[in-house]
């Protein structure tokens, strides 16, 4: 983990963010009416005109761009129209909730997938394997928002043991975590199973057997450590996807995370919130990428030399 590596990563993250935001800035101004980003579609013409002047849309495109870019560079993302506070403050309040939610769901999914995937791989072709395959395919295919609604229907409406939505003690986390768990779990089981079967057929596993290692040792000491590598990569990708918030799931449960904030911001046309959320997500993804690279290097010695 050298300093140049860190700089390279940071430069790319900054570049990607700049490219996304800048192209969005110009696309909106060139193809449509930016006022639409701030006002509902049915806003009155007077309100539109007032907003146009307030945003300085009557000035030249370049002047607007430099103003906007300067604000972003000085980390000023503007005031949230709905919360009537600096947008970044609102985002920073929501961010920890999303990070915790995503981390818990992913950690559970990763652990469960390692166990189930290994069991399936060891019994490849048998009925356990088929069962795990159906279960994981179902988990990878289930729409998370629907799973959430069905969870509410079953546990909150019918049995009344869990809250429908809202935020508070641990009990409010059960359903959102369960819903976010499903898809990464299903995906990871497939990955772990595949890489585990590959590892179990690798020559170094034959060596381990030839050395006299019994099945448990062969599976968990020799094969699993190698099979973890693809699973870690995919988990990193999933973590980056989750950084955008548990998106739809947060909306279903009214969970105050960055996904709900962003989607509400979009539906309520609160541009400052959208802009600040995307910036925060980009920073989180940058950190996640570095963590995953470090984790990867600690598992695979071959990465270290590069």
């Amino acid at each position: 983990m050298s300093f140049t590596y860190f700089l390279k990563r940071a430069a790319f993250a900054a570049l990607a963010l700049a490219a996304l935001m800048t192209s969005a800035f110009f696309l909106v101004r060139l193809t449509g009416d930016p006022v639409n980003l701030y006002l509902p579609v049915d806003a009155s013409d007077a309100a539109r005109e007032a907003m146009r002047i307030r945003l300085g849309l009557d000035r030249s495109l370049l002047a607007q761009f430099f103003d906007w870019a300067w604000d972003i560079l000085s980390l000023d993302f503007g005031m949230s129209l709905w919360h009537n506070r600096p947008a970044m403050d609102v985002v920073l309040e929501a961010l920890p909730n999303t990070l915790a939610l995503g981390a818990i769901a992913l950690a559970l999914a990763f652990t469960a997938a390692i166990v189930m995937g290994s069991i399936a791989a060891v019994n490849a072709g048998g009925w356990i394997d088929r069962g795990v395959n159906v279960l994981s395919q179902a988990a990878a295919s289930v729409p998370d928002f629907w799973l959430g609604l069905m969870g509410v229907l079953l546990f909150a409406v019918t049995f009344r043991i869990l809250p429908t939505s809202g935020f508070g003690g641990p009990i409010y986390w059960v359903l959102p975590v369960a819903c976010l768990f499903a898809r990464p779990f299903g995906t990871l089981v497939q990955i772990v199973r595949g890489s585990m079967i590959e590892a179990l057929n690798a020559t170094f596993v034959r060596t381990a057997r030839a050395k006299g290692a019994r099945d448990g040792r062969v599976t968990f000491v020799h094969a699993l450590r190698n099979a973890l590598l693809p699973a870690v990569t995919v988990t990193g990708d999933l973590a980056a996807q989750f950084a955008g918030g548990g998106g739809v799931v947060e909306v279903v449960f009214g969970f105050p995370g960055i996904g709900k904030l962003l989607i509400d911001g979009i539906l309520k046309r609160d541009f400052a919130i959208v802009q600040a959320s995307i910036f925060a997500v980009a920073v989180v993804i940058f950190v996640i990428n570095i963590l995953v690279d470090m984790l990867y290097a600690s598992i695979d010695p071959r990465v270290r030399v590069e």
């Binding site: 020559t203 170094f204 034959r206 060596t207 020799h222 450590r225 695979d300």
Partner: peptide, 10 residues
């Protein structure tokens, strides 16, 4: 093939 036969991560 010793490269394949030795476990790469130990």
């Amino acid at each position: 093939d010793a490269l394949a036969a030795l476990n790469p991560v130990y």
